[in-house]
Design a protein around this nucleic acid. Structure first.
Length: 590
DNA sequence: GTTAGGG
DNA sequence: CCCTAAC
């Protein structure tokens, strides 16, 4: 909406003569940090899953029952990504879940890539070669680098996506884009991309929520907020790094969850997006004596334990474009960044038992039918769903831009190594989790490093500027007639050259309109007003408004000229010709 | 941080 | 809408 606060006093012909001085900056309203708290609660959305899974996992480690399999087999977490070659689906209806432009979370954990069934350790310069794609492995499902004609290697991570729609129904979401990613002509760039329907090649990661009406959400419009949130998120992760693992199942309200997730599930939960399910399989559990007797109201010592085996772990569709010469490490980071970014919006966990969505968080597992005695129950679905009170914005290119911006594209040593070794276990936690002694935990638990402030990079063939421009350009938002009217009104009153004031005056609540935008719009309005109606494009602006634009433009231009003259002459000689300007000029020349 | 102007 | 110089 456009405010009209500044409609009051008018000077000549509706123009308000400039004030003696600009409003002091202290009076300029800053709203940047007022919205932070709204997001506070959402930080732990993923914690629910993390905690549940963590506990389940922990039980396996600490339970008294004998385990006839290696722990890492029982708790078999795999990031499974899937490359499928499908025809492209038009996805007009699907708007990508949007991520704030600056909310990339600084997930410090590593990301393992898999080629031909092998986990790549990223040695420098060990980029993907054009040999990939053929390998198969039952362990590593469906991950194949898609080789793209000797050009950039496009890794098409294309999971099957199951989307929860808030009911028990599911919708298969078609993939977007070719199964074989296309990335011609941009070799040398690190870019995640998708086409928006405009002109830009804007990168984004696109988890989709289909056919789901947009939420009315608190807006989180300020980059600074997002930065803060991101950093807070990150800090939170490390802050809890030393938390001791839970030893009981605890399924109270989500809000009451202490944020105590282990790093392991930091990784896992954070890597889940949107509605990508954690498929779990019930396993026969044996009676176990709780090690937490009496510690929880809902915890009964005779509780049986159920084992959940998370069979696969899926990430949303991602496109990663990266030059062959990039290191595996940089690829891992890219993917990790992308995934992390996806998740930073906050999600809640959904649970489906035998196809039925379980909404009552207070039910016990047993009441829900999750019981070791239930031999019929062989699968659960966990899902991450956009939290109902979580903002879902359009994923603009900005978020991606940040990612790309900060992704080192070089083969530099430090970055590649830092992210490395320790964190491969993040993706394949079973490899490390079950085997690590508790003393080792700190190693994985405490992420050693977030992204360095200024990751080193190498120049790509496309200029960085070009790349960033493509990546972070804001979406185009044409001015409505109402906005134009408000702008004209404000400029009539305030003049051209006080754009910040115009912003505050007339577009205070329009977060997406910066004063630079307003200035630019005015520029185009003046131009539009000068050209013939036939040459004009877009939503037609009423001629009346355009007339006022020219009027105001002329008037204020005149004012500027006179100010200059006055300054040059250093005398008040224009009094007789334009009395009105006296009030304008006089203060300025003092 | 704002403003002005080119891209 | 972006970028940058200049303030």
């Amino acid at each position: 909406m456009v405010s009209h606060k500044c409609v009051e006093e008018f000077g000549y012909k509706g123009y308000l003569l400039p004030p003696n001085a600009r409003a002091p900056r202290s009076a300029r309203k800053k709203r940047s940090f007022e919205k932070i708290n709204e997001e506070d609660d959402e930080m732990c959305a993923i914690d629910l899953l993390a905690t549940v899974a963590e506990n389940l996992l922990f039980e396996k480690r600490s339970s008294l029952m004998s385990i006839d399999k290696p722990v890492n087999e029982i708790v078999d977490n795999r990031l499974t990504t899937q490359t499928t070659v499908k025809e492209e689906f038009p996805v007009e209806e699907e708007k990508p879940v949007t991520l704030s432009e600056d909310n990339r979370s600084l997930s410090p954990f590593g990301f393992s890539s898999v080629t031909n069934g092998k986990v790549e350790t990223d040695a420098d310069g060990d980029g993907f070669s054009n040999s990939g794609g053929g390998g198969d492995s039952s362990q590593v499902e469906d991950f194949k680098p898609v080789i793209n004609g000797g050009d950039a290697v496009a890794v098409d991570v294309r999971p099957n996506v199951v989307v929860s729609l808030g009911s028990s129904s599911r919708t298969e979401v078609p993939s977007m884009g070719n199964g074989v990613s296309v990335s011609h002509g941009v070799r040398g760039d690190v870019n995640m991309f998708s086409r928006d329907d405009d002109e830009n090649f804007s990168g984004y990661i696109c988890p989709r929520v289909t056919k789901k009406p947009p939420r009315t959400v608190p807006r989180i419009g300020d980059r600074r907020i997002r930065k803060i949130l991101a950093s807070r998120h990150w800090k939170g992760g490390s802050r809890h790094a030393d938390a001791k693992p839970w030893r009981s199942y605890h399924l109270p309200h989500q809000r009451s969850y202490p944020v105590k997730k282990k790093r392991y599930f930091d990784h896992i939960s954070d890597s889940v997006s949107d509605d990508y399910r954690l498929r779990t399989k019930m396993q026969r559990g044996s009676k176990a004596v709780s090690s937490m007797k009496g510690q929880g109201a809902s915890f009964v010592s005779s509780d049986s334990h159920v084992r959940l085996r998370i069979k696969s772990f899926r990430v949303p569709e991602l496109f990663v474009e990266i030059p062959e010469t990039a290191t595996v490490g940089s690829l891992k980071r890219m993917v990790m960044e992308a995934v992390s970014t996806l998740l930073s919006d906050g999600h809640r966990v959904g649970l489906m038992v035998q196809g039925k969505k379980v909404r009552d968080d207070n039910k016990t597992l047993h009441q829900t039918g999750i019981s070791q005695d239930n031999t019929h129950l062989d699968s659960l679905d966990f899902s991450l769903e956009p939290s109902s009170d979580t903002p879902q914005q359009l994923l603009t290119s900005n978020s991606l831009g940040r990612i790309c911006e900060d992704l080192p594209m070089c083969h530099t040593s430090k970055m590649d190594n830092v992210f490395e070794s320790d964190h491969d276990s993040a993706l394949f936690p079973s490899d490390s989790f079950g085997q690590k002694s508790s003393t080792d935990d700190s190693k994985t638990l405490v992420p050693k490093l977030a992204l360095p402030p200024h990751p080193p990079r190498v120049k790509s063939k496309r200029s960085e500027q070009q790349q960033q421009q493509a990546a972070r350009r804001r979406i185009r938002r044409p001015f409505s007639v109402a906005e134009v009217e408000a702008l004209v009104l404000a400029v009539e009153k305030l003049g051209t050259g006080r754009w910040r004031d115009v912003k505050v005056c007339a577009f205070e609540d329009a977060d997406h309109r910066t004063y630079v935008d307003l200035k630019d719009k005015w520029k185009t309005l003046v131009h539009t007003a000068k050209i013939s109606p036939q040459q004009r494009r877009g939503e037609p602006v009423p001629q009346e408004l355009l007339d006022r634009v020219l009027d105001a433009h002329g008037y204020w231009s005149q004012q500027h000229v006179q100010v200059l003259q006055t300054i040059n002459n250093n005398e008040q000689q224009q009094q007789e010709t334009l009395p009105q300007s006296q009030t304008l000029v006089a203060p300025l020349i003092v």
